[in-house]
């Protein structure tokens, strides 16, 4: 039922491990700072405080600062260069939205004619009443009566999938759900991963063969749910007025639930090993775990999760 473990051993202070090496400047190999280095384009990680280049030849961008006429990285991340502008994109950061990105968000507040949405960004995103689809599918101006029943569409805590439409002057993003694929989420559970692990894919709606649908939000929120058949999706004709904004789950059988848990655990493991998520990788990983004949909870053990990651490393 319960098992205790230890924290991983932290490195002891070196006081007893032998004499300290005195600092020898000749150990420092003079770092080559030239265009080649900056052109590596993401293949090398910076560390905070690392000197990148001369500030006379280059301009400092995000994630850098200038000291002593040198451009220095202020975060750990990958170097990017556009002409003479050097920026460092941090590895661990909040989500940086771009127009057209698919995100999964959670409603935090209902305000006049708009919802505030937590989308793992620096500021809450905004979903305007004018940028949601109305039940019934009709395209019309939003009336006062719609404003009064905004909580019937989305209320606090609700999860939704949306697209980044535009930015406000203060940098907050504006979302829209004007597509039949977007809208309220149900029949599943949410996993959170660092946003950098979700790459831009051809489609962020993934249907795994095990009867599980995944929505990879570029903001690192991932929705794992029961598969909905294309035909059953609320279509333009007979647009299900209740269905889109429904809070009631379908009946989910046990096999699907287990599959959902398994996929969730796989996503967690891959995220903790800092492996970017793709559809092929997830399918491979799922097949591998099914071969292991363990329950979904066995994936929580260290051995199996390590084995999973090594096996994927060989296949990919």
């Amino acid at each position: 039922m319960i098992s205790f473990s230890s924290f991983p051993a932290t490195r002891e202070y070196a006081e007893f491990s032998g004499p300290h090496h005195p600092y020898d400047p000749s150990d420092d190999v003079e770092m080559e700072i030239d265009e080649d280095y900056l052109d590596t384009n993401g293949s090398k990680l910076t560390y905070p405080g690392e000197s990148l280049t001369s500030s006379q030849a280059y301009m400092r961008g995000h994630g850098t600062y200038v000291d002593n006429e040198e451009v220095i990285a202020s975060v750990a991340g990958t170097i990017e260069r556009v002409n003479k502008l050097v920026t460092v994109r941090a590895i661990r950061s909040r989500y940086n939205p771009e127009v057209g990105d698919l995100v999964v968000g959670r409603i935090t507040e209902v305000q006049p004619r708009r919802w505030k949405v937590d989308a793992n960004s620096r500021q809450d995103a905004v979903l305007m009443l004018s940028s949601v689809n109305l039940p019934g599918g009709v395209q019309r101006r939003k009336l006062e009566s719609d404003e009064l029943q905004m909580r019937n569409f989305f209320e606090e805590g609700d999860l939704l999938v949306a697209e980044v439409q535009a930015f406000f002057a203060d940098g907050a993003m504006s979302l829209h759900t004007r597509s039949l694929r977007y809208g309220k989420l149900r029949n599943g559970q949410l996993v959170t991963v660092p946003p950098i692990l979700v790459r831009r894919l051809k489609s962020h709606f993934i249907a795994l063969p095990c009867g599980v649908d995944l929505i990879l939000g570029l903001n690192g929120y991932i929705w794992v749910s029961k598969h909905v058949k294309e035909a059953e999706q609320e279509g333009e004709e007979g647009f299900d007025a209740e269905g889109v904004y429904s809070n009631i789950n379908d009946n989910i059988d046990e096999i699907t639930r287990t599959a959902i848990s398994r996929v969730t655990n796989i996503v967690r493991i891959l995220a903790s090993h800092f492996i970017p998520l793709t559809d092929t990788l997830l399918i491979e990983a799922y097949d591998w775990t099914v071969d292991q004949e363990g329950g979904a909870k066995d994936l929580l053990s260290e051995d199996l999760s390590d084995a999973l990651v090594t096996s994927l490393a060989f296949r990919v």
């Binding site: 319960i2 098992s3 205790f4 473990s5 046990e254 287990t258 655990n265 979904a296 909870k297 994936l299």
Partner: peptide, 18 residues
């Protein structure tokens, strides 16, 4: 019964102690 991470009802998550 089925839990979100596949644990049994009476399972604890791993507990580390130092």
């Amino acid at each position: 019964p089925h839990r979100a991470d596949g644990r049994n009802l009476t399972d604890y998550r791993s507990v580390a102690l130092e």
